[in-house]
Structures are given as structure tokens and as C-alpha cells.
Write a protein that binds this DNA or RNA. Structure first.
Lengths: 133, 133
DNA sequence: GGTCAATACTAAGCAAGCCTACTAATCCTG
DNA sequence: CAGGATTAGTAGGCTTGCTTAGTATTGACC
């Protein structure tokens, strides 16, 4: 799915992980980098570097946290918001293409089994939100 | 699973993709780089770079193809073979840990559904061999 | 209030994935 | 057999993931 999405999104100039960042920011504007990293299940440095590039590309904005001078608060730029609108159809298209001919029940079973496996491996309870993540 | 395997394999000094290479070579010694790339579902350049590193580490060996001067034939070194023996238990351990509490039927359903999705996205018929891949 | 641990992030450096562009060799077709 | 298309692999350069090591700030405890 990463490959399929990237293929379609390349001309727009955004990768799947970057889309995930935009997607998280849309719902959690003002989040700190650490929080973003946790949601994406990556290390803070990975999120930080991604934000570096996306800031250069004008997709996100870092603002100083008024209460903690170590931290950054993350915000979408207008360009980032516009990008999301262009990517949304692609994301839906991709997951629909992948799930063609897969019954509702099979989809639920799949997510349930994968959650069990993730929990087995990480020790944390898994919280799969949707197909888009 | 990548993360869980890497965590255990780190001290041995091999990554999960490298283990996959060793695993393919064990069953297909003398394969060309392109063939390896195809089995791993990775671009030839990715496989080539991996072989570079593994050759430096003394795990695999490149031998000239007698029939085609463009191509390399790949072989395990004794060190690579020994590495496989140390990694086999880790691989089994990891997939058993992941699948704890997942019924046979759920495992089959999972693989079947994922195969369908892979086929949907790639157009190629999917051929999942086992949990180890 | 001073010290020390914890927290938020960055730096450097590596592996693995990709794309585009290249060389060298082989193969096919006239 | 010559020439062009295809195939096998490499080079450079990008993103994303990691680990280890560092800085700066905050917070907690005596």
C-alpha cells in the first residue's frame, strides 16, 4: 500500500509518511513533535527530520511553545492544508483498490488479527483507527 | 515484526532484510542479483547495495557468471551459513511470539486476505510462501 | 534555592527502500 | 554480420527508519 500510494502521490510531491503527518496535524493541530512521533509510532528523531523537510517544502510550520522553550508546536500551512485536499481522494482510492473483493467481515478479521499480533510484539494495547493509517 | 526481529538480531549483527537474503540464498544458491531482487520484491539496485554490504561483512560471495559477463552469481560463505543457523531460532521465536493466541484459521484467513490485497495492488498473483517471509 | 533526573529535541552516521541515468553485454532482427 | 533494443548491474541522490550521543530546559526533591 505504501508503494501503491507513493506511485500515485509522487507527481504531487508528497510521500506516504508525509501524508500521514499532514493527516495527524489536521486532527491535532498544535501537537508537539514527541506527540506526533508517538502517534506515528516512530522515534522522535525520525519525526523531527520529517518535519525539517516538510517545513522546507512549506507544508508545516513550527511555532515555539509558549510554556516550554524546549518544545515545538506543529501547524499546517495553507499549502499543507491544500495538499491534504488533493491527497484525500488518492488515499481513499488506494485503500479501495486494495480492498476490492474483500468482504466487510474479512476486513474486520484482518484488522483484529493484526492488532493481536501488534499487541503481542509491543506489549502495548493496539489501537488501529482506520484503513487510512 | 521487522522491529521485533531486528531488536533480537542486532547483537548478532544482521538486519531482517539481510536475513531474508541469506534465507533466499540457502534455497537458491547461484541465483543472480536480479532474481534475488524479484524474490524479495525489491528493486535491483536495492538488492545490489545490500549484497555490497553483506559481501564486505563476509556473508555472501559474488562469482562471475560463466555464461553472461554482465551478471553475478551469489553464494553463501561459510560465515553466512553459520549466521543462518544462529538466526533460524530467532525467526521462529519472533513469528511464534507474534502469533500467540491466533488460531490456525485466523492465520490462514490473514494470509489469504493479504494475498488478495497484494494481488489487487500489484496485478500479479501473490505467492506467499510462509510466515518467515 | 541548588542539584540532579527526566524531558524535548538535534546531530551524526548507518541500512534499506526508491528514481533517474548510466555502462556493458547480450540478443534479436534485418 | 551490423545495429538497435533489451537486460544486468552500478552511480548518485533522495526519504524514512534506526541507534547512540549530545544540548537545553524543565521539574522534583532535599
Amino acid at each position: 500500500m505504501r508503494r501503491a500510494f507513493d506511485e500515485r502521490a509522487r507527481e504531487i510531491g508528497v510521500t506516504r509518511p508525509q501524508w500521514q503527518v499532514l493527516s495527524v496535524l489536521l486532527r491535532h493541530e498544535g501537537i508537539k513533535q514527541g506527540g506526533l512521533a508517538e502517534i506515528l509510532e516512530v522515534e522522535p528523531i525520525t519525526a523531527g527530520r520529517m518535519i525539517d523537510r516538510m517545513q522546507d517544502a512549506g507544508l508545516v510550520e513550527r511555532r515555539a511553545d509558549p510554556a516550554d522553550r524546549r518544545a515545538w508546536r506543529l501547524f499546517l500551512t495553507p499549502r499543507g492544508r491544500e495538499m491534504m485536499e488533493r491527497l484525500q481522494p488518492l488515499a481513499i482510492e488506494t485503500s479501495e483498490a486494495a480492498l476490492k473483493g474483500v468482504s466487510e467481515k474479512d476486513q474486520e478479521d484482518l484488522l483484529r488479527t493484526l492488532d493481536t499480533m501488534l499487541e503481542n510484539l509491543t506489549g502495548r494495547p493496539a489501537t488501529t483507527a482506520s484503513w487510512s493509517e
